[in-house]
Design a protein around this nucleic acid. Structure first.
Lengths: 166, 166
DNA sequence: TATTGTTATACTCTATAACTATA
DNA sequence: TATAGTTATAGAGTATAACAATA
């Protein structure tokens, strides 16, 4: 049987990941960072700005949705708000008249830079006592975990067609 | 200035953590595991069972809420469903007549064991190619990150009393 | 006919407010 | 008077359905 690793090693992984997730979603990481950086936007809107800032080039609506793992209409609604506030702009995509390229305005870039600076500062402080090597390793392993877990879930989805096993 | 670590090392941490969180919340880790293990419950209800299973002894309602980082009424509502289905039971707390101790029934224990076995199996498969050392390190560092980030956010909350800075 | 994005609507999850019982 | 839990209600976040425009 391939693919089965020691299960004892991974016991306790789900609770930890859930806690981390709760910290992001309800532990007010967002809320407090927004306050501390003077950002008066809802969480989903900020998430879009973070996605755009991380991409460093304009993204299509569909691409934003994929990266955020949400559906298109959700992105559209947030973009409407962000556009009204002058934080993003919808540009025509020269390669496809149906699509739009979403880009940060200078004002949007400044805002999200402030926000990310606060968060990164908190992360840095939280890990201040860590050995350098642990910091590097954690970022690396976290990235790999996201990749491998995504692939694993995709393969599960493929092998369980429609209605599930039962 | 104490507490400031290299910020370059932590750049990219937020996107990764967000992705992991999205995988848990919307990437259908839960939904697929529930299907694969034949668990017909909503996500919040399963989260409570996981919390109880991880604790290995009965918990008060308030303690469940704290561990899940949610408020009391949310827990109560889920418990009502779980009790009706015979998966948990409310026992009197001998030390305080106001409190109740929530415990898994044998049926609830079996159900959550099946569910956790599926998830742990997926985690193990996702990390099958990892060196043993990386697996261990990841679990350790993830645990420490949760601790340290929680402490950091608490200290931020303390230093920003009511209305925030601006 | 398939795809990109939008609008309108509905659902899931969690919080706040008001209350009861015990400390 | 404060605390543990419950009930009822409200809100935030995201999904599904129906549609328009371009490919």
């Amino acid at each position: 049987m391939p693919g089965a690793a020691k299960s004892e090693a991974v016991a306790g992984l789900l609770p930890r990941m859930s806690q981390l997730s709760a910290l992001l979603n309800r532990g007010q990481l967002f809320e407090r960072a927004a306050t501390a950086s003077g950002v008066a936007l809802e969480r989903p809107a900020v998430t879009i700005l973070v996605t755009l800032a991380t991409a460093d080039h304009p993204l299509r609506v569909g691409e934003i949705a994929t990266r955020m793992q949400v559906v298109g209409p959700h992105v559209t609604r947030q973009l409407n708000t962000l556009e009204k506030r002058g934080l993003i702009q919808r540009l025509p995509d020269p390669e496809d008249q149906r699509a739009r390229l979403i880009d940060l305005t200078p004002s949007g870039q400044r805002l999200i830079d402030r926000y990310l600076a606060v968060i990164d500062g908190w992360f840095a402080t939280a890990m201040a006592e860590w050995p350098d090597r642990d910091r590097t390793e954690f970022v690396r392993l976290l990235g790999r975990m996201v990749e491998d877990l995504t692939a694993q879930l995709d393969s599960v989805a493929d092998s369980v067609p429609e209605d599930g096993t039962r």
